[in-house]
Design a protein around this nucleic acid. Sequence first.
DNA 1: GTGGTCTAGACCACA
DNA 2: GTGGTCTAGACCACG
Lengths: 132, 132, 132, 132
Amino acid sequence: MFIQLDFESEIPIYEQLKDEIIIGIAKQQLLPGERLPSVRALASDIGINLHTVNKAYQQLKQEGFLLIHRQRGVVIHPDGAPKADEHYQKKLHTTLRPMIAESMCRDMSKADYLLLVESIYNELQHGGDSNE
Amino acid sequence: MFIQLDFESEIPIYEQLKDEIIIGIAKQQLLPGERLPSVRALASDIGINLHTVNKAYQQLKQEGFLLIHRQRGVVIHPDGAPKADEHYQKKLHTTLRPMIAESMCRDMSKADYLLLVESIYNELQHGGDSNE
Amino acid sequence: MFIQLDFESEIPIYEQLKDEIIIGIAKQQLLPGERLPSVRALASDIGINLHTVNKAYQQLKQEGFLLIHRQRGVVIHPDGAPKADEHYQKKLHTTLRPMIAESMCRDMSKADYLLLVESIYNELQHGGDSNE
Amino acid sequence: MFIQLDFESEIPIYEQLKDEIIIGIAKQQLLPGERLPSVRALASDIGINLHTVNKAYQQLKQEGFLLIHRQRGVVIHPDGAPKADEHYQKKLHTTLRPMIAESMCRDMSKADYLLLVESIYNELQHGGDSNE
DNA sequence: GTGGTCTAGACCACA
DNA sequence: GTGGTCTAGACCACG
């Protein structure tokens, strides 16, 4: 599990970090109950501030992906991630709609888009052993 | 073409405005060469700041969706939107990957995801006459 | 609406601040849609760090008591606070049980406890005009 | 008397342990003069750190719930728990006020709250024989 | 002027 | 050694 961040990106570092962890869970490189590095360790490892790591961890905890124990550190939620409820589906729809609209404007066919989504699904599903 | 903004949203107003215009183009409610309201008119119409509308227009011009003439005002680019080049595809992949990873974590199947994408494609393609 | 904090307390400042705001809402001194001071204004007013105020605001937003707009500042949630759902009731039960157990150990009768609860309810309900 | 701890909880272990003992006393499962397991025995029994058990015992001794003799070990205070003096009542009021305020915000009626308190009182009073 | 992000460094509670 | 809290100060995005 390598964390690869783009410090030039417009996307906040803590968001990128959240994304990397979620991708790790999806790829099953991070398994339920598995321990993550401490905020300090990961921060110094990546070369960012511990508060930035902490913010990512806290939000992932809030969203149900992580458990945080005062002393035992941070672990992937043993029960697995929260399910895709109605609220999530609605949010996903809202996010996806303008993205797909732009692709349509750019003459990207529905078939192409579906292929792209499928390829990402496959990459994540079968990428369990590879690193990024 | 109604512009529907959510002032409670975490998404900046100018982004929402860009999205609405792009959705309008995708739905073919806004056709190549068609004129958009002036910055002033749209701003006062929606009840937002001039600078916000201007920012949206400028960025859409920068991205090739709009043309801005000094005298003739703002028009949808007559040649249509720029195509989905390699750079765009790569950016789209980067954006989609963490989104799909989260859906996988939440036990959303590939089939469900593809169905969602397809439904949005259909909604945008066949919704050309309706207003939002 | 006066914010009264105890800097010697074991209770974190941001928790006390959250409590004060919730009490203000309960007393209807803070009404739905009403604007709260900016993080900087309140922080300098109370004499604490803006991040501490921000933490209180963020958590109250997360819990549904506040709305935070990037530019328009912080307001009491116009739709009122979230309702007492099952999850909340369960959490309340868990919190209350050891508290009541201790009172029982200390020979506080059920009647006394009920009177205390009732008096607090009345204080908050009829205290709309008083300040703290 | 089973000690049931939630290691996922945000509440410190030693607090939970204190709570469990106090609940045991309230339920009269633990009687005045009754002996508690030694620090070592309880710690190894529950599978937690010695210091954690010790901290709970020390604080309960400090608060007057326990007596700790060098040789005779730890016993429930023979004279019963300290009474609900003015200081305790005041502290209880301070703790209860923000909790009740939140319930009011969440549209929980005074009657519902009183019923909840009453049900917990009854559960503790009549649950003397049952285990949790 | 507003909140959002990030850094830096301190002290404390917990186990 | 772990996360939790608080302070301090900087720069940015938004409108």
